[in-house]
Design a protein around this nucleic acid. Structure first.
Lengths: 145, 145
DNA sequence: CTGTGTGCAAACTCTTTGCATAAGT
DNA sequence: ACTTATGCAAAGAGTTTGCACACAG
């Protein structure tokens, strides 16, 4: 398993093929969760939130399976875990390089539009290490008037 | 309470004065924890780690008090909470603007040396919001040879 | 059939809370 | 004295795990 980018080569592919391409057996639950995750543009969800959506969509799936599935999708490169300090783990359906706004207090995550944000002046890395990912979180707070 | 930067005006001030300046009553536990935190340069610690150090230093303090104290110090602007995805909360003794390396797998946090890293191309913020802080976490992984 | 995936409930980790006791000023 | 802080143990939230049952190929 691990990052198989094939799922990205055909955006119109259905959830079953997408899963097979990632080496995951397309079960009812995985297909339903994939549909919820990938048919609405880029999203940031917690396991709890996705489970809630599944319940509303009348998809019978347990919270434990949602956790399992999210991690399987993450291992397959279909999701990314966000580096946001909070008691909850956010999974991002947009695995490309991009950054986030985080609204303090409200625990809301938003994509930063366009890829025109850059990080400059990176120092040399510790010996034997390479960059896995650079996370930029712009924490916003409500302006007090 | 809340951010009182007075504690920074005199780096040689002892922990008691530092606490008073922040509006915190200088108790045994707070003084001991402040000593552990601020007498060794910039650090990133979890509550568990600081508690462990206190135990080793023969400072009798409960984990609950360590948590309380860390949050009090944070409210007073003496510490900063790091935006690193992980089950643990990291508290940073360096409250100035600076960024971090995070060593995946090892859960180690390191300061990025010098302030020569910058973020460019920030888009306009959502209505009524202002930037509280920009966190950049450069996630590193061991280079596979 | 045979191997995987799922559901459930219990376990686990980190963190917070309530309340009686102790300590600071 | 009066107020605030601490310790303990229990509660809480989010997440993971173990194992019997169900499903996909």
């Amino acid at each position: 398993m691990s990052s198989n980018p094939a799922y990205q080569t055909c955006p119109t592919r259905d959830a079953g093929d997408r899963l097979r391409a990632a080496g995951l057996r397309p079960t009812r639950q995985r297909i339903a969760l994939a549909d919820l995750l990938f048919s609405k543009g880029d999203r940031h969800l917690t396991a709890e939130e996705l489970h809630e959506e599944a319940v509303i969509a009348k998809v019978p799936v347990s919270l434990a399976t949602v956790y399992n599935t999210l991690h399987q999708f993450t291992d397959a490169g279909m999701l990314r875990v966000l580096a946001i300090e909070s008691s909850k783990t956010y999974f991002d359906t947009n695995v490309s390089d991009h950054q986030h706004f985080f609204l303090e207090g409200e625990n809301v995550v938003m994509d930063i539009p366009h890829g025109d944000m850059t990080v400059n002046g990176l120092p040399k890395l510790p010996e034997g290490m390479e960059i896995a990912h650079i996370d930029v979180v712009v924490r916003l707070r409500r302006k007090r008037i």
